[in-house]
Design a protein around this nucleic acid. Structure first.
Lengths: 363, 363
DNA sequence: TTCGAAAATGTCACCGGTGTCAATCCTTAT
DNA sequence: ATAAGGATTGACACCGGTGACATTTTCGAA
């Protein structure tokens, strides 16, 4: 209480429902109420809300006191209208793995907690010819503060181009440097692939196969590239017939593994480009009557929760997906805080050795 | 083109950037532009936008033509400010299963597609004492059009009570009739549990166990209740020591199953209250050296994608989660369209028989 | 033809903030 | 003490709609 009540001036928030004193839920206070009580103009209150440096410390303190007293919170809709910018962060995604999606979401939500920003979901079907237009119209209408694009949406250059035209900030999560410049979360998938290759080579494997993702995904090439590099360092090569596409899906993994096992000299170890396909490989390998890891070792990628739920648990390359989501959101918000935003944040994958890999059987 | 251009009146949208004719991205048209071109007041345009029945057909057509010509879309923020109601649908969730969460999200997004509504995520930790307050403050600030509460948030009566006080619509997804009246998506978990019990009984099982969810979840009781009912119909009983809690989590499932297998007379069949715990049971069962389904049959609940990815694939009780999410959103939006909203929509689970169940071994 | 009620449309303030620019208040250098 | 110039603060229109209520049409009944 820094000021004496002034009967004419210091009325409680506009609503006349002056319940007995300290009611907590009196119809939300507005910036006008704060201004009146603090005896300043609403513009100055606005400045305080927005951390403007041009407010005298004393004034600022007084206003903050009133804000606290009233439990005032600025109205996001009104602010959005006036600024032509909402408090929404859009997650534009098309990733087929639920585990991945949920982890990213959690990460973003972690970072958004305590801020005024909200996470809105915006699925994107890159197969549809109008997918870019849809996102543009979403932006035009809802004026999101920013967007977060995980793979594979992040690799969509036409989209990135359109985004640069449009009036939005965005952060991409991807495994490669992308043509269009923008802030991004970068993962070193090549290193991850290399770790997988090194692990298998060190176990003594020589008959090694790879199930990779769609060729249209940049990560497919990164992971495979690193993998082959590591094999080369161990004087091994990935034979052409030992590399099959599995589309990053469970079913694709099953089919791809079956194809590998049907060959005259089936592999003793398989590196799958993601956990989903590795899980499919489990099924195919067992259907064919082989044991894991005694007969065949399997390595995945991503370390989604399913990896730990398989039996035996899947050796895989871990990507800190949740942290990446969090970092992406933080990067996006930094602009808001006027800080000089770092352009890149890099995450390195690391191999998690569990039960699905072992030295090849004597045979 | 229903009107002749009037040099003074019919200027293109406020922005002076009159590019060569049919530019698509001319700074978004506003309701004022439409009103001017259609030679009516903005209020009448507003009426058309909002499907008010009090507009003459001819006027309506003319305005709609202008709207189409201009590519006008009303500004959600401005509308929200004026109506004190945003176009956000909040998903308040705490469900630990990513599969479940993603499915619900997809369902909601299916229903929201093409509307002006956006889905915002609002995780809720029921363990925190202020979880209700947080949601209240979210509502006060963002004025969501409505909320969707899947289990277990849906079973939180204090929250429902608070929501009734607050100015929000909401739809709950739950397995039981809840105390607080509200619109809801109802699932007949009891029938699902019964289907699981019947299936195992028909296979000839007699030594049957159950891993259930937390006692604080209503679905736990529903599923178990139906299960026991079916067993009773086959003159079987669920022994007290054959019912263990698994917390609806993978780890809980592992521990619970281990406990069951450690007993002097271990079960030949296990019904887990959800797929997550069933997956845990797989691990424990195999660690103990048993085969599925030859030695032990396992049944899950939910039919999340993981069910089909296990080996052997999990026999489970399917709940059409995505459709439920969609139905929940539709129910919420019906108010918007002024239709008489149905209070309840019921979904029946059905058993999906896959590879994890078989007749008990002779033994 | 005339009148009145219902139908259609318009007026105008206001939702709760922010941007622009002018006005006022302090300091510090003469 | 005094003017210059930056630091603070305020005035006011405006963002793009909607609500409440007034006004004007329209049309069948008298």
């Amino acid at each position: 209480m820094k000021h004496e009540a002034d009967p004419e001036d210091a009325l409680p928030p506009s609503s006349p429902q002056a319940v007995g004193g300290e009611a907590v839920f009196r119809g939300k206070a507005t910036i006008n109420d704060v201004a009146r009580l603090a005896k300043v103009s609403k513009k100055t209150v606005s400045r305080v809300i927005n951390e403007s440096p041009f407010v005298k410390q004393k004034t600022r303190d007084a206003i903050k006191a009133v804000i606290a007293e009233l439990g005032f919170t600025p109205d996001p809709q009104a602010r959005a209208l006036a600024r032509r910018k909402s408090f929404l962060i859009g997650l534009v995604f098309d990733n087929p793995s639920p585990q991945y999606v949920v982890s990213i979401q959690r990460g973003i939500l972690d970072a958004l907690e305590g801020t005024d920003f909200q996470l809105v979901l915006h699925p994107c079907d890159r197969a549809k010819p109008d997918h870019v237009a849809r996102i543009q119209s979403f932006i035009q209408q809802h004026k999101p503060f920013g967007l977060i694009l995980p793979p594979s949406v992040s690799e969509d250059e036409p989209l990135a181009l359109a985004l640069n035209e449009a009036d939005v900030d965005y952060v991409r999560i991807a495994s490669v440097e992308l043509d269009t410049p923008s802030r991004m979360i970068r993962t070193l998938d090549g290193d991850g692939g290399a770790a997988a290759g090194r692990h298998l080579a060190e176990l003594g494997h020589r008959h090694i196969a790879h199930i990779h993702g769609p060729l249209s995904f940049r990560s497919t090439h990164e992971r495979r590239g690193g993998f082959e590099r590591a094999l080369a360092e161990a004087s091994l090569v990935l034979l052409p017939e030992m590399a099959v596409e599995g589309g990053y899906t469970f079913d694709g993994g099953v089919v791809a593994a079956e194809q590998l096992l049907a060959q005259p000299a089936p592999p003793k170890a398989i590196f799958a480009g993601n956990d989903e396909m590795a899980t499919g490989a489990y099924v195919a390998v067992r259907r064919a009557g082989f044991r894991i890891p005694e007969d065949i070792s399997i390595v995945g990628f991503d370390d989604t929760p399913i990896a730990g739920r398989l039996w035996p648990a899947l050796t895989t390359v871990r990507l800190p997906i949740r942290e990446m989501g969090s970092a992406a959101a933080t990067l996006l918000l930094q602009t808001a805080e006027g800080m000089t935003a770092k352009k890149f944040i890099t995450f390195s994958p690391e191999i998690v050795v569990r039960g699905s890999t072992a030295a090849p059987s004597a045979n």
